[in-house]
Computed example of a mutant assay.
Amino acid sequence: MNCEDTKTAYWIIAVLGFVFATLGFASSKAVAVYIGQELHVGVTFQKTISGALQEMGLKIDPSDRVVIKPAGFVVSDMDSTFRSGEKIEFEKANPVIIQFDGMRKQILCTRKNLRNAVSKIGIKLGPLDRIQVSEDPYRPGTMLTRVVRVEHKLVRRKERIPYEIDYVPNNQVHQGKVAVWKLGSGGEREDLYREIYEDGKLVTSTFISTRISHRPIHEEMAIGEAEMPGGAIEKILVEATAYSPTVAECDADPWTTATGMRSGYGIIAVDPAVIPYFTKVYVEGYGYAIAGDCGGAIKNNIIDVFFYKPEEAMRWGRRKVNMYVLEWPKRSQR
């Protein structure tokens, strides 16, 4: 109803009130009732809201919604009194089928009072939950409603950052050879998302921010430039066996070494009391390697070189070879 209609209603109420008061009907009341978009104006001798509405031919149900204007408060007791000149907004309750948490219930309520009605029958609504309303196509006048459980979550997801490989000329590595000179390791980042779930199902996921928790370390590959194992500090005669990454030859986790390195070609097992971990060496017949693991049978001058396939390890067998120490580890690594 627009502003002009409202002014007209007030004018009619005032006129009717004045006329009936002049005629001596002191107990009469002028009343304006809005039913939907329709305005009904009249005079009643009823004292209560329910009496005035029933006098106008309306059937009253406790589930109906009545609002007193212009104060705007919702009437909880239909038998309460009202003053002459007050406007009454009336909304008739209709059958409503409510679907929630896998169950169904039918109640009587108005569209505007739906959320309160749902709470009164014991359905707890969260602050973000919403009620979805539609008309029942098979039963005119019946509303179909569904309680949608809405949940917002902040979700952190960890993602691995691959490391890069740098190729660097090296005069301690034979010409034509490429060797791992410095092991790389992957980093890790943590991505933060805001996710919205409806009835337990993901609806939207919005990226918010990212944070690097561990930065990746570049792997350095040495490109050989020396005619001999240049810069060798020491030559050691060793007995070299070979192994492959199997549980039978290693342990329950054959891909993780005693130093935390990942097993791979160029990682050898040593006796750390003789050859400290992280020592860089050159093994005749095998190539460049780093001392990164140990073993129960690896004592004194025995080393164990890595191969990916068991048959390669078997072909290597057990042999005596010269091992050239290219670089001892820094004290902080020992």
Rank of each mutant, 00 (worst) to 15 (best):
R65L: 09
K69T: 07
E220P: 03
G24H: 02
A240G: 13
T241A: 15
C109H: 10
I233S: 07
G36C: 05
L154T: 12
S134L: 12
I121G: 11
K158M: 13
I165S: 08
Y167C: 04
R149W: 04
C3R: 11
F82L: 04
R211Q: 10
D77Q: 07
K158H: 10
Y167R: 15
I13G: 02
P127F: 02
Q99A: 03
K280I: 09
H214S: 11
P229L: 05
I121K: 05
G85V: 02
I223T: 02
I121H: 12
R115P: 07
A30P: 14
V238G: 04
D191R: 06
I212C: 01
A21W: 11
S28N: 08
V270I: 13
E198A: 01
L53M: 12
V43F: 01
I97V: 15
I60M: 15
T6K: 06
E135C: 04
N170P: 04
V75N: 09
R189F: 04
E151P: 00
F307M: 06
P140G: 08
N113F: 04
L154I: 15
G287M: 01
A252N: 09
V31N: 02
V15Q: 10
A242M: 08
S119D: 09
V180H: 02
Y282R: 13
Y288V: 02
D304Q: 11
R104I: 08
